[in-house]
């Protein structure tokens, strides 16, 4: 089983979480949590298992970003998701030297969220104009708070 092989390969990396997922509910066979600094090692291990990078995106929460990496395999059905919590203001290491396909995905995450990847060869905006001065998918937490407070006061 591929998921067992991946578990074995990820074992020595001391990750926060390596658990089997509930495929019928989430579409994941394996759920992994790692630190952003561990991502190059994780990507290397996934590549050695023959997985390809399906998608890379980010989620914006109040205290942190969560980078979400999806890996899948051409021969065997096994989708692995890796969540990496990144404190706001910090940089994550790139995996584009391992998966060249990550180059554009990381540019997209930078473009939409402003997350910077260290070691990326060409971290420019990709979807928005090069001279845009905002990152559109950042949530506006302060405004939400103010709104609910003003409602409570009214």
């Amino acid at each position: 089983m591929l998921s067992d092989d991946i578990r074995k390969a990820l074992g020595p990396l001391n990750l926060e979480k390596v658990e089997s997922g509930d495929y019928s509910k989430t579409g994941y066979h394996l759920e992994v949590a790692a630190k952003p600094a561990q991502m190059p090692e994780v990507a290397q291990a996934m590549l050695a298992q023959g997985c390809f990078l399906e998608s890379l995106t980010a989620l914006h929460f109040r205290e942190h970003f969560t980078l979400v990496y999806h890996f899948a395999h051409y021969d065997e059905l096994c989708r692995t998701v890796v969540h990496a919590m990144l404190p706001i203001g910090q940089k994550a290491p790139t995996i584009s030297h391992i998966y060249p396909g990550a180059n554009w995905y990381e540019r997209e995450v930078y473009d939409l969220f402003g997350v910077r990847f260290t070691g990326h060869p060409d971290l420019r905006r990709i979807l928005l104009p090069f001279d845009a001065d905002f990152h559109p998918l950042l949530k506006e937490f302060e405004e939400i708070v103010e709104e609910s407070e003003s409602k409570a006061n009214a």
């Binding site: 997985c51 390809f52 990078l53 051409y74 060249p100």
Partner: peptide
Amino acid sequence: QCMLYGLTGPMV
């Protein structure tokens, strides 16, 4: 290359 770039569909 397919694997490195995560290609899918008729490309792979």
